[in-house]
Design a protein around this nucleic acid. Structure first.
Lengths: 151, 151
DNA sequence: GTTGAAAGTCGCTAAAT
DNA sequence: ATTTAGCGACTTTCAAC
C-alpha cells in the first residue's frame, strides 16, 4: 500500500469499470502495472469487490429508515444475522454499543411497506424495543458515488 | 424495467466488472443486448455508477460509529451538507425525522481519531447534542457485496 | 522486488439482418 | 434481439531496471 495504490483505489471507487489504461493515465503507470496492483489489492482483501450503485428511488423504493433494536435477552451476532438475512428490506445491519443491540438500515417502497418490514423484524428477533427514524434526505454518501446530492 | 433488467442489476451489483457476455449468460441475452440495457439503466439513472468496495479495516480504518446530531436552531440540508463534506471521516449523512436533525456515519482509524472527528463535527455544526454508538460488528451490507459476514 | 513493451486473445461496439 | 466484423482492451510473456 503506497501512494500509487491509493490513487488506484480512488480511481476504482470513482468508476469501477474504468479500463486499466485509464487508471494508469491518472496515476502514471502502464496498464499491466495497474492490473498487477489491482489483482494484488483484490487478493489481499483491500478491495472486497466491485458493485453497481443502484438508485433505490428509481426502482420505486423511496422510503428509508434507520432502526435501533433492543432484544429480549442476549443474542449472538451470528444468530442476529441469520434472522435478518431473510428480510430483504434490511439492507444493512450492525451490532452497536449502548442501549441498543443492533442498528438496522431499511429500504421500502413506502411507509406502509416499511411498517410491514418492521413488523417482520419484530417477529424474527423478539424485540424489546425499537427506535426508528425515517430518512428525509441523503446529504452525503462517500461509499456510493453519485448516490447523494452532488458528492 | 422488466425481469431481464432486474437480473442485469443483480449481476452488476454482484460484480460491476463482469463482462456483458457473462451477464448475458446469466439472464439469457446476447452481449450487445445486455450493453443496450445497461446503457439505458445508466441513462435513466437507475444505475448511478460503478464503484469498488474497499475494506476500511484493511486500510487501518477499523473504527466505525453512527452519530445522531441535534443542531442549535434550524439548519438547511444544503448548509448541513456544505459543512460536512469537509470532514473526510463522515462517510454518510442523512437528515431524519425525530429529535435529531441528522444521522452521520463516521469512519476512523481508532477511537482517538473518532473523538477528534466528532469534535470537528461539533465545531462545524454548532451542535446542541449528539448521541453516538460505536459499531461492534457488521452483520449485513447488501449495498456492498462481501463487506459483511458472508452475505 | 518492480516496471514497461509486444503479442495473442478476448471483449466491446456499431452495423446489418 | 441476434449475428457479424472491426477495433480496442485485456492479459500473458519477456526483457530491463
Amino acid at each position: 500500500m503506497d501512494g500509487l495504490d491509493e490513487g488506484i483505489l480512488r480511481a476504482l471507487v470513482a468508476d469501477a469499470r474504468a479500463t486499466f489504461a485509464e487508471i494508469g493515465a491518472e496515476v502514471g503507470l502502464s496498464a499491466p502495472a495497474v492490473k498487477r496492483r489491482v489483482d494484488r489489492l483484490v487478493a489481499t482483501g483491500a478491495v472486497r469487490g466491485f458493485t453497481a450503485v443502484v438508485d433505490p428511488a428509481a426502482l420505486g423504493w423511496g422510503t428509508e429508515a434507520y432502526v435501533e433494536v433492543r432484544c429480549e435477552g442476549p443474542v449472538s451476532p451470528r444468530e442476529l444475522r441469520r434472522r435478518l438475512v431473510g428480510i430483504p428490506e434490511v439492507v444493512e445491519a450492525v451490532t452497536v454499543t449502548g442501549r441498543a443491540d443492533a442498528l438496522l438500515h431499511l429500504l421500502a417502497r413506502d411507509v406502509q411497506h416499511l411498517e410491514r418490514a418492521l413488523e417482520r423484524v419484530r417477529d424474527e428477533l423478539d424485540v424489546a424495543a425499537t427506535e426508528s427514524v425515517i430518512v428525509l434526505s441523503r446529504l452525503l454518501d462517500r461509499a456510493r458515488p453519485g448516490h447523494a446530492g452532488g458528492d
